[in-house]
Design a protein around this nucleic acid. Structure first.
Length: 259
DNA sequence: AGTGTCAAGGGGAGGG
DNA sequence: CCCTCCCCTTGACACT
């Protein structure tokens, strides 16, 4: 695998002035709005590919079965209660009850905020729906809410949170790719530094070559693009080191070390 | 007690 | 102006 293969991840890394609306509104007390910040994102085509190849997406792997699904959203609740009682039906009823209590409180404007846990079936249905489309139009939302005995607002919130989780996962994946790319570049840099040292050593131990005109140093044996002064045959180059690919050429005519 | 997860609150941005 | 989205945050709960 070549350097280009590893590093062609489609990631784009850039500087911005943190002028996005949300960053500005929320971070005004935390950071200077003019302070530059790094933005990390996939290029559009890579995002499309990621969407098209769902098997490679950690989120999608997470949602390939009901079992995995439950572990995604409310497995901890189920695990605990299954272990203690083994009564899943009771568990479901209890959770539905808690939902209804929550609904009642909402309607009455009660201030106590009870934790609502969606049932396994509700989560599964929502996940299925999310797989089909990550956003809902009002009709779909209402239908889903009716089907799951939830309020449309709850369905909406679930989708919002779900999108946020997906985005977080994607960011983690992007981060890993960037780390790998960075490691590759570091290795490449190390290799080139080593090669440079070797060439400098050769230069010192073979002073006769230093007498050659500078033009003789502009040939790149690996790509054989250019020949100057002495000859075009790279195999005869005095700078070839045991057949290794040396890039002994002017950086001004060949700025890229990888040719 | 500390931590992670998740439903929900709140507020700004943008589109119709 | 309303609706929806995104982002950040909060609070409840489960787990270690």
């Amino acid at each position: 695998m070549g350097y280009g293969d590893i590093c062609h991840t489609g990631l784009s890394l850039g500087l911005s002035s943190c002028d996005t609306s949300n960053q500005q509104k929320k971070s005004s007390s935390k950071s200077d709005p003019f302070f530059p910040c790094l933005t990390l994102s996939l290029s559009p085509e890579v995002r499309y590919q990621a969407a098209a190849t769902k098997e490679t997406n950690p989120y999608q792997r997470q949602t390939t079965s009901l079992t995995e699904l439950s572990s995604f959203s409310n497995s901890s609740v189920k695990r605990e209660r299954d272990a203690s009682t083994g009564e899943e039906v009771e568990d479901e009823e209890e959770r539905v009850l808690s939902k209804e209590i929550s609904d009642d409180q909402d309607e009455e404007g009660a201030c106590a905020r009870k934790k609502l846990r969606l049932t396994k079936e509700q989560s599964a249905t929502l996940e299925d729906s999310f797989k089909e489309h990550s956003t809902l139009n009002p009709k779909q939302k209402q239908a889903l809410a009716n089907r799951l005995n939830l309020r449309p607002r709850q369905v909406e919130v679930w989708f919002q949170n779900r999108r946020a989780r997906t985005k977080l996962k994607q960011t983690e994946v992007d981060c890993e790719l960037l780390k790998k790319c960075c490691e590759t570049l570091t290795d490449e840099n190390r290799r080139l530094q080593k090669e440079l040292q070797e060439l400098r050593a050769i230069k010192l131990t073979a002073p006769v070559y230093m007498q050659l005109p500078a033009a003789t140093l502009t040939m790149c044996p690996s790509c054989e693009r250019i020949a100057g002064g002495v000859g075009d045959n790279s195999s005869k180059s005095p700078f070839s080191i045991n057949g290794t690919k040396s890039h002994f050429y002017s950086p001004f005519t060949h700025p890229s070390a990888a040719c």
